[in-house]
Simulated assay, not measured.
Amino acid sequence: MEFYTFLVIAGVLAIAAIAVIGGVIELLRQRVLVDSETRAVIGISIPGLGDFSTNYPSLGAIALGLLMCFGTIVWISNEPAQIPVTATVTVTNPALHADSESDLFLSVVPQRYRRSVIGNQLDTPVRIDLSVDDGEDYVAIVRSSVKDAEDGVAYQGLASGPINISNSDGTVSGEYESVLRVR
């Protein structure tokens, strides 16, 4: 689970807890509203639960808080399992100066997964780890941009291919390996 998703879930559950606790506290205070014209107690009748002479907002706060908690828990339980994927990419071009560095951009489609690795040495395998949702076939697309350290000319390369998903010892994982020759 990503950090920002965790923050949203924690925030929603905190707001829901405050709503439920506040509603219960208001119910325990037993505040009764009286109509100013008729001097009659304002009540609410809920089928199956009976008649209540209490504040509408306290019941509404409890209902809203419970609904938020329920919705968040259902949403969390529908999150798909994650598969760890390791992409090993080597950028090469014998014509480039040895001190040239490459920038790698890895995208995994059809989902929203992207990683960037900046400042890699040529001819050195780079390992990029990420997690993707289980249950789909993925294609890795790698783009590299290299600026030659000697003459300043920029070179680009592109590689793509399927991610090999394997299931060994009950552990599902994916691998992608590529040698990318920039031109």
Results as ranks from 00 to 15, higher is better:
Gly50Tyr: 10
Gln111Ile: 03
Asp148Glu: 06
Glu177Leu: 04
Val34Ala: 03
Asn93Thr: 01
Leu122Glu: 05
Thr86Lys: 12
Ala154Ser: 14
Gly65Thr: 01
Gly60Leu: 04
Ser145Ile: 09
Asp169His: 10
Val132Ile: 13
Arg39Asn: 09
Ile83His: 04
Gly22Met: 02
Tyr176Gln: 06
Pro94Trp: 02
Val139Lys: 12
Ala61Val: 01
Arg115Phe: 03
Thr86Ser: 06
Phe3Thr: 06
Val179Lys: 15
Ile44Ala: 11
Phe3Leu: 08
Phe105Lys: 14
Gly161Cys: 10
Leu49Lys: 15
Gly65Phe: 03
Pro57Asn: 07
Pro94Met: 05
Ser168Arg: 12
Leu59Arg: 08
Val109Lys: 10
Val172Gln: 14
Ile42Cys: 11
Tyr155Ile: 03
Val117Asn: 15
Ile141Leu: 14
Gly23His: 00
Pro110Lys: 12
Asp169Ala: 10
Tyr176Glu: 04
Leu49Ile: 10
Asn164Gly: 06
Ala149Lys: 03
Gly119Tyr: 03
Val179Gln: 15
Pro125Tyr: 13
Leu49Phe: 09
Ala16Gln: 00
Ser100Thr: 04
Asp51Thr: 07
Thr72Asn: 05
Val179Trp: 13
Asp148Tyr: 09
Ser100Lys: 03
Ile62Leu: 01
Asp134Met: 08
Thr92Asn: 12
Leu28Ile: 11
Arg112Ile: 00
Ser178Gly: 07
Ala16Met: 00
Gly161Arg: 09
Val117Ala: 04
Ala63Asn: 11
Gln30Phe: 04
Ser173Leu: 06
Gly50Gln: 06
Asn164Asp: 13
Glu136Thr: 03
Glu37Ala: 04
Glu2Pro: 04
Thr5Ser: 09
Tyr56Asn: 09
Val8Glu: 03
Leu7Ser: 05
Gly22Thr: 01
Asn93Pro: 02
Ile163Val: 15
Gln111Glu: 07
Val109Arg: 12
Ser77Lys: 05
Arg115Thr: 03
Glu37Gly: 01
Val89Asn: 14
Val172Ser: 06
Ala149Phe: 02
Ala16Asn: 02
Arg39Val: 00
Arg115Pro: 01
Ser166Trp: 02
Leu7Lys: 08
Leu13Asn: 03
Arg112Pro: 01
Ala17Ser: 14
Ile21Val: 15
Arg114Ile: 00
Gly152Pro: 00
